[in-house]
Design a binder for these strands. Sequence first.
DNA 1: GCGATACA
DNA 2: TGTATCGC
Length: 888
Amino acid sequence: MTKKNEEIYLIDGSSYIYRAYHAMGGLSNSKGFPTNAIFGFCNMLAKTMRERAPKRIAVIFDAKGPNFRYEIYPAYKANRPPTPDDLQIQIPRIHEIVEAYRIPSISVPGFEADDIIAALSRLAADKGWKVTIVSGDKDLTQLVSDGISMWDPQRDVTYDREGVSKKFGVFPEQMLDFLALVGDSSDNIPGVPGIGPKRAIALLQEFGSLEGIYTNIDRVAQKSVKEKLVGNKDNAFLSRKLAELRFEVPLPVQPEDLVVQEQDSEALREIFKELEFKKLLEELPARRCLDFSGYCTISTMEELLEWVETFRRVRRFAVDLETTSTEPMRAKLAGLSFCAESGKACYLPVGHTQGSQLKKDEVLTVLRPVLEDETIFKFGQNIKYDMIVLKREGITVKGITCDTMLASYLLDPSRRGHSLDDLAESCLEHRTIRITELIGTGKNQILFSEVDIENATKYACEDAEVTCRVAEILCPRLETEGLTKLMNEVELPLIPVLVDMEIAGVRIDIPYLRTLSEEFGEMLKSSEEAIYEMAGEPFNINSPKQLGEILFKRLGLKGVKKTKTGLSTSLEVLEELALEHELPRLILGYRSIYKLKSTYVDSLVNLVNPETGRIHTSYNQAVTATGRLSSSDPNLQNIPIRSTEGRKIRAAFIPDDGYAYVAADYSQIELRLVAHISGDERLKQAFIAGEDIHAITAADVFGCSLAEVVPEMRRRAKEINFGIIYGMGPFKLAGRIGVGLKMAKQYLEDYYRTYAGVRQYMEEVPERAKRDGYVTTILGRKRFLPDLNNPNKIAQQAAKRMAVNTTIQGSAADLMKLAMIRVHDALKKTGLPARMILQVHDELVLEVREDVAREAQTLLKREMEHVYPLSIPLVVDTAIGKNWDEAH
DNA sequence: GCGATACA
DNA sequence: TGTATCGC
């Protein structure tokens, strides 16, 4: 009896494992457990389940041990190296995952997965079922027929009879003969040596089959081909036997039994969590474990006063604002939510377009004393945002004792994603209501103030409750990890500093930028013309694809360098190519100008806030793995520092009328920290003596006196010093200073001989980190480096460099943050008409009323230099100017 | 040596 | 979603 409309999916498990393993190198979770094969396999499986949702399905694996092919041909797969360890340990997890999906899995001793698939697909096809083989392996296309097709979810292509022919040039029934001729080096199947895919296709198209070829062997025109075929007839037929799939497999199950059951989502959640498969976790059915019944909307003054009483009584609560924008300087307040104890939360709408609400001003008047009372503790998630919005409403929030985003960041700065949604998932195993569920996405997005109050209440109360609960989990964790002090003395006190900086913003010289835009535009135009001229046709220079066409096809330059999705056109490659052709040099110039023009010159104007007339760069405190701040809109860290173009952009940052800039930057803070932390006496002495450190290094490395150091020697020494900080290898160093590899090695050797303390330090840091699992900075900031135990040597080396570099960069970041807090305090105490407006790299910039510029300069230098007691002096260079460039 | 942001 | 360029 044939059943219509029945279908079955047969997944070629083993081949996906190998494919994933080889396609993705180095993937592992934060504990260093390799996950590349599992990841690739899971994605394939998840995609199949998501898009096809088959009722009948099985994953087929190779069985352990030999199979019949070895008996026919002992050398079968002989050249295949044994399964690598880091793949082997992934395999049990893959089986667990298949089990958790409740998908039947099959393997049969003595047979390969391909044979089992062959047998099953024939059985199912005979019943009239539609069979889909899930695989990317061309060997299996020999099974494709009317009822059997093959699908590769990775490339998302389906092969039916025509598809196979189109892709491989032969029909499914010829595939076996094709394989017999071509062989398979990875399985050590010989085929006919000298016959490649092209020739095999031609032969099969002409003679139909292997037998056809050999019965008509005299008609093979090319003599050499004929000789090869004749000489290797046995090989050809042996190869066919090896590639031929067996249908008579003793199957442990029948196709009818291969029914998928409901997946065990909890088991999958556990596994994905451990492996850190974020996207797959996200795809699991949401688990919403918070109870909304204790949530309420505040719509009367009585209710509000009652809540305020509660805040005064319990003396700690979580706050969260709902607004109309993610940019705090543009956001309009829609409402506030609070949570003082788990299970209970309230939403206080003040700016919704519909529904009855209390008046914002009255509400804020009632809330102000509580929010500004520093003895009543507040928790928040990225509370800097809320503080900016509230400060614009005239309220200075005090008493922040926990920011869940920062807590999460301190606990694991390399983790990406410290959003409330992430924390709810990882700390509470709760899937929060997503903002897009309320306001939609893209063009149809509405403002939060337009959301109806009932839904807004659920959303906002949930956020407040999650913040409260997460704070209760993360704060004790900070304590046990020894991070509380860093939190209380650095990260939390830094928040009000950043709040003031972001609110202050910076003035931009718009007319100047317009002329600069024209100037850069002219440069681009002429550069563009020259490029088109040289290329012979106009094209989109910014498209790496089109550029690649021109460079490598049209001009025939050899794109021997890097690839991934085509040939690379990176700086490195273009510089190499510049030796042979002028065009790459022009492209390089074009690119740098274009980037500056588009990301700074033209976009700075768009960032100007219409209300304040200034730009309000946002400083992110929870992004970098080393502890540095990052900035966006605009990203100040990326403005070229030395080039004329970069300086022109900095000149667009100007102080208010009657004000000046005072800029201060730490001189050599990283090398100084190397001296301090490593305790290397010679390096310390150099800094204590206050000498030019690069010149001293030059004298030490090149074995001469300080007076004999010429500029070129100093330049090389400078590169060596950089190399030390960034963990540069001798090869890279050689490239940078333009000497041979041997010479660079010698330099490093000489350096380490002179500064033995530095060498010891650079060796000890990764060792200790390997023991502890993390490195620490001068103020105890941690960064976990699981890759120190990664069997992948490349990843391990990288982690070693990060270990050293993080202690240096991270310590510098610690001190800079401390300095910002000190300077901010000092300015407040002295009441100087000055405010901090920029922080970038190792530099701080104040906007100061002109008449007190010198005073501010002295204060800035003093506070920064005495930020923290060290065994070497910190030196800060300062300058005053009428724009940011001048202040150098 | 990689990171962070921005653009295609 | 991926790649490049600036930075440290």
